[in-house]
Design a protein around this nucleic acid. Structure first.
Lengths: 136, 136
DNA sequence: AATCTTCTTTAGAATAATTATAAACAACGA
DNA sequence: TCGTTGTTTATAATTATTCTAAAGAAGATT
């Protein structure tokens, strides 16, 4: 359980004004035990449900992008019409249940170390993502 | 170099009528040495350039989806506003140059075997994809 | 507290990729 | 050649996302 006060501090420290909307979004995103995978639309609906207050869709987009930029959210590369985000920003990978359109975390240890044996001159590796698609 | 006749046969064997449009698309997609990464829009423009004949955008979508369904094209999971496809349908992975928005093949050997140490009851693994993002 | 500046929210418009529609057309089998 | 079925096409519809510009709220300054 994280208190509203902590979100306010975290926002201030990130040079983001602690507005009512952002705090509500924090509550929905970060006030949970387990990692959370979502699309903008999921989040938009959850805010209304969980906090009782409506936040405009544009603000949800703005805030998610701001949080992503600050490194509080991770974007998950997946083939879907919608963009998926993850509150777990540590180094880890994903199962994607194609039928259910649902993501499941894989710990780094569940996958093992990945050694890339090729390099491109002038470029360095920014991230390595493993996506394991699941079927029935 | 693959001949038009071979494309016609391949299409017929796949229960796809060998139309002028589909043959042109085959020429652009499969008449090359190296693997080819593309978006629908890339392909749409290339057809006009390479064959001199125009194919409607809707047909490009239809055909790419048909070829994908038949297993002649692979969809690459990536976060982009456009969907990327690959003519290399063998088991392999990718670099993605974020700045240039360009994909580069990684042979399976370049990455090494990936052992997934976790399983989900009732589900089996359909594919394992590694995406290595590159930055300058 | 009043004022000023800057950042944020918002509704709605704009954009862009993709999918759906339905009429014209082309391939195939009889 | 004719009838059937599959295909192409322009265009409209849909959907996710971004843009815009005006109203509102937060923070700093007095």
């Amino acid at each position: 359980m994280t208190s509203k006060q902590e979100f306010i501090e975290k926002l201030r420290n990130s040079n983001l004004r602690p507005t009512k909307q952002r705090i509500n979004i924090c509550e929905v995103l970060f006030n949970r035990d387990k990692t959370f995978h979502f699309t903008i639309n999921d989040l938009f609906n959850l805010i209304k449900d969980k906090t009782g207050e409506k936040v405009s869709l544009a603000t949800v987009y703005n805030t998610v992008h701001a949080f992503h930029k600050k490194g509080y959210l991770k974007e998950i590369p997946i083939n879907s019409n919608q963009t998926y985000f993850d509150t777990n920003v540590t180094d880890h990978h994903h199962f994607f249940d194609v039928k259910e359109e649902k993501l499941i975390d894989l710990k780094s240890e569940d996958v093992g170390p990945i050694e890339i044996q090729k390099s491109i001159p002038g470029k360095k590796i920014k991230s390595v993502e493993v996506l394991v698609k699941l079927e029935d």
